[in-house]
Design a protein around this nucleic acid. Structure first.
Lengths: 229, 229
DNA sequence: CCAAAAGTGTTTCTATTACACCCATGT
DNA sequence: ACATGGGTGTAATAGAAACACTTTTGG
């Protein structure tokens, strides 16, 4: 690669860090790892890695996410570039943060053990290394914004789910209670949900009907954007 | 600075590029320069520069913007990190794009000549180097989003301005016509505008009253966010 | 039979849209 | 006197918010 035109300029270490969101039916959580190398070894951290000369930051983020979850084709979005000179205590490292939404059920528990990873509810985040708490906070705000214009359930929920679960998800993201009747009416009016005959019976005696997304309608709304909830 | 922990990783050239928006009372424009060095010397380009080892990308963007406009304390926001491996024809350069909103009247025309800079209406953008057209497009979308939740007139308009000018600004950003009566009612209801006694007489016989922003109320709305237009 | 969560409609209020004429002035 | 752009109000519609009781069923 021909770099001769720019050789007089500084080169900088560039990392990616991933905020991985998951939802267990009740709580919105983020996946954290115990950092396996110095500096700050043994402290809670986002999953991250360095960007190689021959890959885009998107590719680096996909690679890093695959390492931790074993998953591909994950919903992921670039969040922000964190660049304070002193953000990493061991040297100048610029970090591009990404946030990912994953279906907590599909994810590879073996890898969780290898990396000493753990899901933390967002309201019980431990102190993280560097500026990672700030990254999580920013990802959370972005998710809130995202959700108000795009459907996101597909990414975070299992194939079938109940309306109370979906409402829990929205309440977790918005950090506020929603009216059950208004929520049901609104979400059903979008025409992206198909009611199933079976009920989920774990969380109540009566049981709640399962729903699945109508994939095509869902994608259409995602492309076009909607005023959501 | 101690970088020994990370020495086995690639270091990358990092640049910032600035999309500088201005509004002349009629049209929304972006400031472009004729690139002064190879590669692509002489072609239209965003103003940019490399990020030094000892500065944040924010600082680099502020520095670059100052070089071109002579202005400080400019409204600026990080837009996105563009990182395709081949985006720069002369080598691997990652670019963090920023967009800036400036008051076109305050800006230093001398510097415009030094850099062979020119304002281009957004609907008459020339072909730009690398991925710069894509950056402009993304900035434009982001501005649209921003405007729907935050006041931005302060940054783009001169100290006093007329309601028709303000409406032109919103129409330029949204790329759609707005109803004059609805616009006026809505914007005045926010309570951030103070009517002046003088009129602007250039663009009509009758003349349009000048308004100024109530700085405190404006800032409050900016902090809290509003459903805008 | 009771505790616990699911399911279901109506009314009120607020915000958005659509729409047309008179006013002030310079030429 | 007329051409040009500035300024102003009301009615209709749609969307959001508030609100409480009945149903199901496992224990």
């Amino acid at each position: 690669m021909n770099l001769n035109k720019y050789t007089s300029h500084d080169r900088i270490l560039v990392a990616v860090d991933c905020i991985i969101f998951g939802f267990d039916g009740q709580q919105l959580k983020a996946l954290l790892i115990k950092r396996g190398f110095e500096p700050e070894k043994g402290r809670w951290s986002l999953m991250g890695g360095f960007v190689n000369q021959d890959e885009s930051t998107d590719d680096a983020a996909i690679r890093v996410l695959h390492q931790l979850t074993g998953m591909d084709n994950i919903y992921m979005e670039q969040l922000y570039c964190f660049s304070d000179v002193d953000r990493d205590s061991a040297g100048r490292v610029l970090s591009i943060a990404y946030f990912a939404l994953i279906n907590i059920e599909n994810y590879n528990v073996q890898l969780e053990q290898d990396h000493e990873a753990r899901w933390f509810p967002l309201d019980k985040m431990p102190a993280l290394i560097f500026d990672h708490n700030q990254m999580v906070e920013k990802a959370r705000e972005r998710l809130k914004l995202k959700v108000s214009n795009h459907p996101i359930g597909f990414e975070l929920l299992p194939d079938r789910f109940t309306l109370p679960q979906l409402q829990n998800l929205y309440e977790a993201i918005y950090e506020e209670a929603l009216d059950k009747r208004n929520f049901t009416r609104k979400i059903l009016s979008l025409g992206i949900l198909n009611k199933q005959n079976e009920k989920e019976k774990e969380s109540s005696r009566k049981g709640a009907f399962y729903y699945v997304f109508d994939k095509n309608k869902y994608k259409k709304l995602d492309r076009e954007g909607v005023k959501f909830i």
